[in-house]
């Protein structure tokens, strides 16, 4: 009981703090209020207008239809990605300084990794979402012997993860394919009564994580689709056959698309970092800042700077990368440090 209460308080505290951080951000106009030319070049806009005229209708032509008419290759995606920083300078800077800022060369020429497992198509799912080809077009050879090199040296510096990996730029209502309801609506719709098909798509998300569950998501290259977090599956993870408590924060679904356990969803398998131990049930975003991934400020939100044992929590080795550390935040339990823990508190 005590433990549960403590945890809830901690979670609530962390949540309140991060909400405050969001509120402090300067207010930017919605993407729907921007001119196309803010991000796109004239040639693309012209192509789009042609498509509109060809279709001869006032309904949005739908995602797939636009993509067929205006396919974007990786170079175009990289160029578009760079535009985000014009408005979102802080986020871009944070991302650039984070572990997510890896390049293709860093992702695919990692000798330690490639000796263990060869580069393969599945790597592209997280490490080259927008690449125009298969693994063999990106890195050679596809084996565990190496030496590995980029198939094309020009690719080396490309970003593995861009803003559009996790963010959908256009409002979803613009992207829906036509529907019979929308066609019927068109005849009755006026300035004041929006189309049914639009209102349905813009209903605010009620999930934990708030509006971010619509803004953040995952681009799945296998489906060529962006999945907003509110539509991604919520992870279930097991430890010793029992389900672990996972945060209700829908934003963690994005994390789990890449930081995923194996098919049986056992904690700690594959790339899984599910919190188990004393931090079980917290959200990834309770500690990690969304773009910088930085966690240093997080511990002190709940813990006294100096813990009972005199260790400075802000200097403890808490990262999952430190395999030898007893203080990996994702797995640490009371008994990792305390020899005698009352049974009731374990």
């Amino acid at each position: 009981m005590m433990k549960a209460l403590l945890k809830t308080t901690m979670l609530a505290g962390a949540w309140a703090v991060s909400a405050l951080v969001f509120a402090a951000e300067p207010k930017l106009p919605a993407h729907s209020q921007l001119d196309c030319a803010k991000c796109h070049d004239a040639a693309l806009i012209e192509k789009f207008k042609q498509l509109q005229q060809q279709l001869g209708k006032d309904a949005a032509p739908g995602w797939d239809r636009v993509a067929e008419a205006i396919p974007l290759n990786e170079a175009a995606m990289q160029a578009l990605g760079a535009k985000c920083a014009d408005c979102h300078a802080k986020q871009a800077k944070d991302l650039a300084a984070s572990g997510h800022a890896m390049t293709y060369a860093q992702s695919f020429l990692n000798r330690e990794h490639n000796r263990m497992e060869p580069p393969m198509d599945d790597c592209l799912r997280c490490h080259a979402m927008f690449f125009d080809g298969a693994a063999g077009d990106l890195v050679k050879p596809l084996d565990t012997r190496g030496p590995w090199r980029m198939a094309d040296e020009k690719l080396a510096g490309h970003r593995s993860i861009m803003c559009v990996s996790c963010h959908q730029i256009h409002p979803e209502r613009w992207l829906s394919p036509p529907s019979v309801a929308a066609v019927s609506d068109r005849r009755t719709a006026t300035e004041d009564t929006p189309r049914r098909s639009e209102t349905a798509a813009t209903e605010p998300s009620k999930l934990v994580g708030g509006a971010a569950t619509r803004k953040a998501g995952f681009f799945d290259r296998r489906e060529h689709q962006f999945f907003p977090a509110d539509r991604l599956p919520h992870p279930k993870v097991f430890k010793d056959g029992k389900p672990l408590k996972l945060s209700d924060d829908a934003r963690i679904r994005v994390c789990y698309q890449c930081h995923a356990p194996g098919a049986a969803h056992h904690a700690g398998t594959s790339d899984d970092r599910t919190l188990r131990g004393v931090h079980e049930g917290m959200s990834c975003l309770d500690c990690h800042s969304t773009h910088s991934l930085d966690t240093r400020a997080a511990c002190a939100q709940c813990h006294p700077a100096s813990s009972n044992c005199g260790l400075d929590v802000t200097r403890m080795d808490t990262t999952a990368r430190a395999k030898a550390s007893k203080h990996d935040i994702h797995t640490m339990t009371c008994t990792d440090c305390h020899a005698k823990v009352p049974k009731a508190r374990q």
Binding site: P118, M120, D121, D122, R125, D143, G262, A263, A264, S270
Partner: peptide
Amino acid sequence: GRPACIKCRYCVGFACEV
């Protein structure tokens, strides 16, 4: 020189992603 199966949902009918 190739990795172990990740036990995905698909397999028969598909090329293997790993």
